[in-house]
Design a protein around this nucleic acid. Sequence first.
DNA 1: TTGTACGCGTTATCAT
DNA 2: ATGATAACGCGTACAA
Lengths: 335, 335
Amino acid sequence: MGKKRITIAEVASAAGVSMMTVSRAINQRYGVNEETRQRILKIADELGYRPSQLARGLVTHQSATLGLVMPDVSNPFFSQIARGAEEIAYQNNYNLFLINTCEDVKREKDALDSLLEKEIDGAVWCSSRLSQDEIIPYLDLLPAAVLVNRELEVDHQHVSTVNVDDSQGTRISLDYLIGHHRTKIALLAGPTLSVSGKRRLDGFKAGLKEHHLPLEEVRIEPCAPTTLGGKEAALKLFDRCPDVDAVIAFNDLVAVGVLHACIQIGKSVPEDVAVIGADDIPLAALTSPSLTTLHVDLAALGENAMSALLRLIDLPDEPAQKIMMAPQLLIRQSA
Amino acid sequence: MGKKRITIAEVASAAGVSMMTVSRAINQRYGVNEETRQRILKIADELGYRPSQLARGLVTHQSATLGLVMPDVSNPFFSQIARGAEEIAYQNNYNLFLINTCEDVKREKDALDSLLEKEIDGAVWCSSRLSQDEIIPYLDLLPAAVLVNRELEVDHQHVSTVNVDDSQGTRISLDYLIGHHRTKIALLAGPTLSVSGKRRLDGFKAGLKEHHLPLEEVRIEPCAPTTLGGKEAALKLFDRCPDVDAVIAFNDLVAVGVLHACIQIGKSVPEDVAVIGADDIPLAALTSPSLTTLHVDLAALGENAMSALLRLIDLPDEPAQKIMMAPQLLIRQSA
DNA sequence: TTGTACGCGTTATCAT
DNA sequence: ATGATAACGCGTACAA
């Protein structure tokens, strides 16, 4: 049962010095005789002394504690981010509060409230569902924050952002396809209102323009972000434009739907139609043909986010960062 | 930038009452006029007052904070447990420190040390690599703890355990196979030293005995817990016992290896050989034939672990629990 | 019902 | 190099 806590006072009296000297010895501060320090550390260790971060935090206003807020850790997308973020936090002697919001606005607010009460030193905040107006008050209260998967219209001195560069990802896919002599390239653009869908569309248009290829609106088709959505959209697309020789899909599930559609109408992949997905979900390696797709190093994303947060904390006068993670094209069989 | 903190004293003076009255109002205690309470709460809200859990914890010795220690959140096995555990913690107004140990003993000790310094109220500790002798001192220091995937030889008043009942899982697989008229059942038992391997072997032997079937040692083969390990072991097994009509595999990867072996030597699954895996990894649904396997509700496991921890905290006089999670047979095509 | 004094374990400040 | 004392923000015990 949680034994009685040894306090700095007990170490001090055991060592025959003042509390202040013990404190200095423990915290590796200057101004204490090396010999005394060793003696104190030895005694502290023997007594099983552990400094109370609560008491320390109360006076320093730093808890050596950070928050990690995300919709759902059991989603592989976020669990990898969590892994990377926690790694960096650990290396820098911070502990991490993990909170799942379950896509629920109330829970998200609860999360931030509880973190604020815990006096965290900062937070990595993923895929917030809150409106800009709801986010900002929390941002103001936080010593530092990094928003992941979310852009901020207004700049804050102590708020950085980390996003996946969907636009560039689409550019990369497009460049690859054009480089492999595909000319009639279609885009399954995802949900009409999706932000990342918009960014992909931007990249698509910009890429075509730069390659001096015409923008054929008929080759752009919105779709639900699912296998079924991809299949239906692909069937509609191929019916309208039978000459399409490549498809850039909103994500891997959509790409799998395209594969199904191709089987159904007798097109072979990649011979007749090249298909590129996005996200590199585990399934992507297991389809046949396996999916060429955009891979994002999510652990690295988490590491970057946490590093950015620590930078904000350690160098409060440096400007905030806006980090874009570029996806990499993982070439398998489908393109 | 993290604005200046409003303290209970400021709320008190703004409301024209003493700090104590504010404290009572905030903590929903009796002994404060309802009218006064409402007025205080209103003022506290307007001022943006947030109680400091640090200061509160310092005096109450309760931090409303728990620890969750696991090898790796990005492993789906653990991320689901984390999800379930965090859910229960949230419902009970606790925050959760997440720590990855990366299978590293030093990191695991670091983790516990830092949690102890944070004065957590308890911890869910998964798959510890520490020896019994190393674990116990930490357990003694923790107010409460739940060990997941780990048994404890000695009972502790404030330590419960949650494990997957591998023995019963094997029994369930065995019963199913026997019920479907398989009689020459083999076991790919996993690594020789594996604890869960031993439990599976126990269940296997007990099950055969109960069904009055002979225990043929030649049908038991150890194996590495991988696809390759499963394939090699299966080839060796079929070579030795060509009449085997069913295989219980150590886990799904091993089962996939068995599938590969069957293809190689021309046995069809499930006609010639039934195959049952364990763990229900995502891949299990995607093989052909898809894998019949033992499924464990890991989110529920996490919930149970966290509930057990809260029980230990809330009801310190109740005895500790030893929870076994029974796997369920998920019948697909391979058996 | 409300208020006062004190202590929780630590660090900061100012002294010695 | 070391020590005494005052905070940090809150809850508890006891008094009013």
